[in-house]
Design a protein around this nucleic acid. Structure first.
Length: 847
DNA sequence: AGCACGCCGACT
DNA sequence: GTCGGCGTGCTC
């Protein structure tokens, strides 16, 4: 019957031909290829490139993934599975993004899945877990199969069929107390006791506000009066109602009542009774409703007009930038610390917005503070989205959707903000472009947000402005070559001169026995003088903890990490020995386990010891420490900053954190406790990094008309780098450094790819690395391959490391070819049976 | 990345 | 004899 009908029924003229669509999807897994799924015919119209779909992957996994392409080509050597579900009817990933993600996977030698994984906020990735439920046909009485006690336990937990309780696999595992519960589930399925289903859910939960409003029938003066009479004998309810009416002009403004009032405004007040409010709701006087609200305040504090005027120098710089953008897409703004780059950025952002485009403003993590956000918020109001790593996942999704939906035209954010779904960027600002925190190290994609921003700019026709007081040598080189525009701002804002930089010779001081712990008499005296003058001091020590090493004074025994090739650092406040690489920690040893001596001493020093010493030497000083250990809690960073700002503390001791973008008007002295530990680094970028660090930290001294002072303690004041820092001439530093780079064939004259081979067995790892190096030499030539070599820290988290450095010429064709070759070389190693356990990692443009 | 299938030691 | 360890291969 139905068959006949089908046969007879003519295809409606309006219906499209019955095309079978296939989609190529990006799975959120480190897989090299895309996978092709078939679209159920009735869902053909739902296909959206950049939208999410749910598919079955493998036997037992449902995943949400992104549609990368739609086509009609059926796969030839396998049967495509059907898509299970379409989640979105509009893209969550835009076309320009897909293009960028492809570029990233290609350039950084990783998979698209890894890029997608890093890009999407976790809440946009659907959670999928298998669950089990009692089979409708199952009943205990009629059950014919014998059941094991474990099976009984699960059936008990599933309750009766009627109330249909479901258990996740994890819950089943917990219930049985074993990890291998699969057999039990399989057996239960076989016996038709349970069935299995997949539960997928969007994890993003909108924020819901509970609100109340006056029921519609009371919204007239007359009805209200009547209501008052009725409530006359109920003072609490009347009180609550009056309070509501006081806050909401019900009669005059009907819309105000419709918008209602937050329920908490009535219930949380100690003067009002929450139960009275609930009674009013129950009796229908007030009605309660939910309102989905944004996690970001909508009320627009924007003035549209910035509350400042650009100085003549800033105006000139701004105009020069605009001029460069006329001819070039990328411009470097080289402006000394305190020259007022932010004002220029704001001005440019306003212009870009006026032209209708989107703007992305990237900042390193530590520079994206409440200070800068408040400032931007004042100008851009609710058009500004903020993307910070300390944000909750729901907040990130809101920013993501806000960019998609056009609510946010400007986003200020950290590294990962380059993943946001822009499709109409007209300006990207990368502030502090030299910062190494733009580079992601550990999980792939090992990308540099600055480079991604440049590529994104070129894809979307956006101008990119790089800003820094100490540009990366590579960046400055491009500018000098004329590939980037170059604008220089050399004057500090508001008359503040550059600080005086002085070197203090610690070797000499040691000889003269004039050191007080790690302080020279000069530094200590200067700190005292500044404190006496009610001024503030910042001390920089590039190492956290109390001491990096402890050692037995009698036998020389040193506690080492069990998982890494490092000594354990002593942290006094927690009285622990900690590994800074894997997080391993144990109690501080009192007695040497090797010889039994109790003379276990600390060696070397970190921020904690500096803080400690200073508190003892200058008891009148109020010392605060700022490093990874004191800022781990959510708001502690903000707290430390605000204490220092309000001058509750007068000395701030810290790691790199104190060097970035903090503006404190009253700081007149910056001390660098041990410059040598910053300079001596086995890396071609050591000088650049040291220079940047010294200049950045010096920039904290002296602002708003006060001339600051910088004291650098070093055992060897004759080192070249100090000369460059003291002359305060970036050009000179650059000229020196670029010559070095040229001589030794380092970037920007070459491109570097660092390969790391990790293996739990040292010998096997070494052999794998040797093979990899051989394969690379074969393909790229001996001159391009350095190593393998064990890094200084040759074991981390139980993996032995071997590194191979590949140096390539800069040309793009070379790069393309080389990456192909590297991929092949890696495959050769991976295909060897004995190296199956080796982990091979490629890091393109390491920092 | 999971998660299955497949081959070797200590136990009902 | 089996249960269960984790080694390698596949997932459209």
């Amino acid at each position: 019957m139905t068959l006949a009908l089908d046969f007879v029924a003519p295809t409606p003229a309006s219906a499209p031909d019955r095309v079978t669509l296939f989609v190529d999807v990006i799975l959120p897994l480190p897989l090299p290829r895309l996978y092709t799924y078939r679209v159920p015919f009735e869902l053909n119209d739902n296909v959206v490139i950049g939208g999410r779909v749910i598919v079955q992957f493998g036997a037992k996994k449902t995943l949400s993934c992104i549609v990368a392409a739609v086509h009609e080509t059926p796969p030839t050597n396998y049967q495509a599975k059907y898509i299970l579900e379409f989640i979105d009817d509009a893209p969550v990933v835009t076309q320009p993004q897909l293009k960028l993600f492809r570029w990233m996977a290609d350039y950084y030698l990783c998979t698209l899945g890894e890029v997608i994984n890093a890009a999407l906020p976790a809440a946009l990735k659907l959670s999928s877990e298998s669950r089990i439920q009692l089979h409708p046909s199952f009943s205990r009485e009629e059950n014919e199969y014998p059941l094991t006690p474990q099976e009984e336990l699960i059936i008990d937990a599933l309750g009766a069929v009627s109330d249909g309780k479901a258990l996740t696999f994890t819950e089943v595992g917990d219930l049985l107390g074993i990890a291998s519960f699969h057999k039990v589930i399989k057996s239960l399925m076989h016996k038709d006791v349970i069935f299995l289903f997949e539960h997928t859910a969007d994890k993003y939960a909108p924020k819901v506000l509970k609100k109340v409003r006056l029921a519609h029938r009371y919204v007239t003066a007359g009805a209200l009066e009547e209501l008052f009479n009725v409530l006359g004998s109920k003072p609490k309810q009347l009180d609550a109602l009056l309070h509501y009416l006081q806050r909401v002009p019900v009669v005059q403004n009907e819309h105000a009542n419709h918008a209602g009032l937050e329920k908490a405004a009535l219930t949380s007040s100690p003067r009002l009774s929450a139960s009275a409010v609930n009674t009013l709701i129950k009796n229908g006087v007030l009605e309660q409703f939910d309102q989905i609200v944004s996690r970001f305040p909508m009320d627009d504090g924007a003035t549209t007009q910035p509350n400042f005027d650009l100085t003549a120098a800033q105006l000139t710089a701004r105009d020069e930038i605009m001029q460069h953008f006329g001819a070039r897409d990328i411009t470097l703004l080289h402006g000394v610390t305190g020259a007022g780059k932010t004002e220029i950025y704001i001005d440019l952002i306003q212009q870009a917005l006026a032209g209708g485009g989107q703007v992305l403003y990237l900042l390193p993590e530590i520079a994206l503070t409440a200070q800068i956000v408040t400032r931007l918020m004042r100008v851009f109001g609710s058009r500004l989205g903020v993307y910070h790593s300390k944000f909750s996942d729901n907040e990130r999704v809101e920013v993501w959707n806000g960019v998609l939906g056009g609510r946010f035209q400007v986003v200020v954010g950290v590294r990962s903000a380059v993943f946001l779904p822009f499709d109409n960027l007209s300006l990207i600002i990368v502030d502090e472009e030299h910062e190494s925190s733009y580079k992601q190290y550990d999980p792939a994609p090992r990308y540099n947000a600055r480079e991604v921003a440049l590529m994104m700019g070129s894809f979307q026709g956006a101008k990119v402005l790089l800003g820094s007081a100490t540009p990366a040598v590579e960046t400055y080189y491009q500018a000098r070559q004329g590939r980037y525009g170059l604008v220089t701002l050399s004057k500090r804002f508001g008359e503040a001169g550059m600080p005086d930089v002085e070197l203090v010779d610690t070797r000499k001081a040691r000889e003269q026995k004039s050191m007080h712990n790690h302080f020279t008499a000069e530094l200590l005296g200067e700190i005292e003088r500044k404190l006496g003058a009610q001024e503030q001091v910042i001390l920089f020590q590039n190492r956290r903890g109390y001491s990096p090493v402890v050692a037995c004074d009698d036998c020389g025994w040193i506690p080492k990490c069990a998982n890494c090739a490092v000594s354990l650092s002593y942290h006094k406040h927690s009285h622990e020995l900690r590994c800074h690489y894997c997080g391993y920690h144990e109690s501080m040893v009192v007695k040497c386990p090797a010889c039994g001596s109790r003379a276990v001493k600390t060696v070397g020093f970190g921020t904690e010891k500096i803080e400690d010493d200073l508190k003892i030497m200058l008891p009148q000083a109020n010392v605060q420490r700022m490093d990874l250990d004191t800022t781990r809690a959510k708001n502690s960073y903000q707290q430390i900053i605000s204490d220092f700002e309000k001058q509750n503390t007068n000395v701030l001791v810290g790691t790199q954190m104190v060097t970035k973008g903090l503006d404190f008007a009253n700081v007149s002295l910056v001390g660098i406790i041990n410059a040598d530990s910053i300079i001596h680094y086995p890396d071609f970028r050591a000088h650049e990094r040291a220079y940047q660090m010294f200049v950045q930290v010096s920039g904290r001294a002296g602002r708003k008309g006060k001339k600051g002072k910088v004291l650098i303690q070093t055992a060897d004041p004759t080192q070249v780098i100090f000369d460059k820092v003291m002359r305060n001439d970036y050009e000179e530093f650059y000229n020196y450094e670029i010559t070095q780079r040229h001589e030794h064939g380092y970037p920007p004259f070459t491109r570097i790819i660092k390969m790391t081979v990790k293996h739990v067995e040292q010998g096997v790892g070494e052999k794998a690395a040797i093979l990899l190096a051989q394969e690379l030499v074969e393909r790229l030539g001996a001159g391009a391959v350095l190593g393998p070599e064990a890094p200084y820290i040759f074991r981390i988290r139980n993996f032995f490391l071997q590194e191979i450095t590949i140096k390539l010429e800069r040309a793009h064709t070379v790069l393309r070819h080389a990456k192909q070759q590297i991929g092949e070389a890696m495959d050769v190693v991976r295909d060897q049976k004995e190296f199956k356990q080796a982990r091979l990692v490629a890091d393109v443009d390491p920092m």
